[in-house]
Design a protein around this nucleic acid. Structure first.
Lengths: 208, 208
DNA sequence: CTCCGCATTATTGGCGCCAATATTGGCGCC
DNA sequence: GGCGCCAATATTGGCGCCAATAATGCGGAG
């Protein structure tokens, strides 16, 4: 199902985000061809918007382009996923040294960790995905190195499919929730090394 | 002066690269407006090509876009430059752990270090810029983590102006050349920590 | 029955026109 | 003489048409 086909929003990045979302949510399966005619109907926008969005998604390598043939959703590539995950580990561990955590920020992080825990216990896949994402994005946003924060968030959007679908066991999900809380506490205690270790383990989990 | 306005090359990334090059070479000064009409004449391509290129350069933040006004070359931002440099330090130090250096690769690196040294002694600014770039790109390419290598190279293209122009003293340049050789030797000796230290110092220099 | 080739159809992607909007320059008013 | 408003001009950016090219389906030959 198409998400939020706002037929008259400020089209531009909106379409790109919508397509990216549908790819990561699995609505547009890996390998499928993205016909411009379909897309412009699905998202209720013009062909020009679609082309811009596809071009940008190509640079993000969420889709690939073959001239005179079209665009298709990138196939999952285990090697690439592993490499990107390792880059996330590198960047997020480095980010810890730039974190500026106010008490309010820590309170907000606790709230977000709580939300993810709730979604883990009784929530849809989408809720889990989004609350998890929010936690990490907020944490990232605490970095005084704005470029580093932006890069990390950006990188999240570079992973093709293998979406929320197959988050493994319930036990694993709840462990993730617990890890979120542990990270908050490490941050609150100003224990950088511990936070780094927690982050590394957390990210290196098969999915998420 | 416009560089290589190949009026009938495969326009696409070519135009983007050409504009990026002119920005980094200073031909398109920071703050100047990039009128589409001028650009399509300068690079001998169509308006569509120009628009795609400008859109991509906007995502790279080499230019900025104001709707109904146009695109202009990003102004140098010291904070941003410092942050990006710090990210380079993080990534290139991390890259050291992924390096796979064959004897041939080390020989090639020596050759490139030599070329930069020659350009340092008696070469144009452009030659220095390019040979320096080649050294770093080649070194980066030795990483077994292809995504990491791609990210590092990508990041080099995100720095706006303050180009080769003002490479400071001749002494500094020759020190850079010496550092290149030292890095090669550290790599050849398999001394990761030393290579990391050299890289960090090298990158943290005011320019380059 | 299968395979090859051709005509038809579907799709991409370039190009240019034009409306909307900002900028410039001139003219009159204070 | 300076300031501000308004007309003329310049520029952006959307939209749709159409040529080039690839995919598809049909029919005939082996």
């Amino acid at each position: 199902m198409a998400r939020a086909a706002k037929s008259s929003g400020q089209t531009g990045e909106a379409v790109e985000a919508a397509i990216a979302g549908d790819i990561q949510a699995g609505a547009l399966p890996p390998g499928s061809w993205l016909k411009q005619i379909d897309l412009e109907r699905r998202y209720g926008c013009t062909r020009t918007d679609i082309r811009r969005a596809l071009d940008r998604l190509t640079t993000r390598r969420l889709v690939q382009h073959i001239p005179e043939r079209g665009y298709y959703v990138c196939l999952p590539d285990d090697r690439r996923k592993a490499e990107l995950r390792e880059i996330r580990v590198i960047l997020e561990m480095a980010m810890v040294d730039f974190l500026a955590a106010t008490p309010e920020a820590i309170a907000e992080l606790r709230r977000l960790a709580e939300r993810f825990a709730e979604a883990s216990a009784a929530g849809t896949h989408l809720e889990r995905y989004e609350s998890n994402r929010e936690f990490h994005v907020y944490l990232t946003g605490l970095s005084r190195n704005r470029e580093l924060a932006a890069l990390i968030v950006d990188l999240r959007g570079h992973l093709p499919a293998t979406p929320v679908m197959q988050w493994h066991s319930q036990a694993r999900i709840e462990q993730s929730a617990a890890e979120h809380f542990a990270m908050v506490e490490a941050l609150a205690a100003g224990d950088g090394p511990r936070l780094k270790a927690l982050l590394a383990d957390h990210i290196r989990q098969p999915t998420r």
